[in-house]
């Protein structure tokens, strides 16, 4: 059996007394499109930061492509692409300059850098304004640029923190096609998103984190089956949506709470 592309074993991150991520353990198999879900403040971004070497775990181990993140972060970073929370772009560069910078950081040669930069800018529809600075891009354009930068070195594992936030429908379809193409060619994608429909459509496996703890992990079918067996009045063959699964697992609901806000029009 292949070793997992991403492996988190008992990963914990504390900030003083506050435990942001608590003993999280999961594996992501090579070639999997893995969705990582959770309510706001559940620990998604902290987890993704630890998986990509941007934050050291307080305890536990992270392995990516068989390498230990604490021992060999450079080798891992060479093979992964990241669209972090907030994107962390360099605002006062043009898109092409930014992509060339990223390519050189990954050690791509001049010819490959030029070729991939042009292709990515065309693909992401960012080539029309070569002199515009990144800081002047719309949010959606910045997202597309961040994604282009994350894939320019053809990573084997891609980590995406809310990649579709603020992206228009046309661009979203383009991006989804690109990501599915990467999966078809054997890449692994780890995705967090609040848009459950997108996760349901793209991901084969899903993990859910709530209050720092992993509360569900498995294929979509496994999660459906697990939740359906617990829900009273649910038929075994009834297909639950990811939203129903999510709400059931994290325990959020809330018609009752909404009704309390009686002053709302």
């Amino acid at each position: 059996m292949n070793s997992p592309a991403i492996s988190a074993q008992n990963v914990t991150r504390r900030f003083g007394d506050f435990v942001a991520v608590d003993q999280v353990t999961f594996d992501v198999a090579p070639g999997q499109f893995f969705g990582f879900l959770g309510p706001n403040g559940a620990g998604k971004s902290t987890t993704i930061k630890m998986l990509t070497g941007l934050l050291a775990p307080s305890s536990g181990n992270v392995h990516v492509l068989g390498e230990d993140m604490s021992r060999n972060p450079v080798a891992i970073k060479q093979q992964i692409g990241v669209v972090p929370e907030g994107m962390a772009l360099f605002g006062r560069l043009t898109a092409a300059e930014y992509l060339r910078f990223v390519a050189r950081m990954y050690g791509l040669d001049r010819q490959t850098t030029r070729q991939r930069t042009e292709e990515l800018l065309e693909f992401m529809h960012l080539a029309n304004e070569p002199k515009k600075l990144v800081t002047d891009f719309s949010h959606g354009m910045q997202k597309k640029l961040a994604l282009a930068a994350a894939v320019i070195h053809a990573p084997r594992v891609l980590f995406l923190d809310e990649p579709f936030e603020g992206v228009d429908a046309v661009a979203a379809v383009t991006l989804k096609n690109m990501l599915q193409g990467m999966i078809a060619r054997g890449a692994t994608i780890f995705l967090t998103s609040h848009v459950l429909e997108i996760v349901e459509r793209l991901c084969s496996h899903v993990a859910i984190i709530s209050k720092g703890r992993l509360v569900a992990n498995g294929s979509l079918e496994e999660l459906r089956h697990g939740v359906a067996s617990r829900l009273p009045g649910t038929q075994g063959d009834e297909k639950l949506t990811l939203e129903q699964i999510f709400l059931n697992v994290v325990g959020g609901n809330s018609a009752d709470e909404a009704q309390e806000l009686s002053w709302l029009a």
Partner: peptide, 21 residues
């Protein structure tokens, strides 16, 4: 070689940012 490329990339990036400012 990779580190040298990275130094050059960072220096170039800073210069470009300065020029664009």
């Amino acid at each position: 070689r990779r580190s040298m490329m990275q130094y050059a990339a960072v220096a170039r990036m800073r210069m470009q940012m300065l020029a664009h400012s």
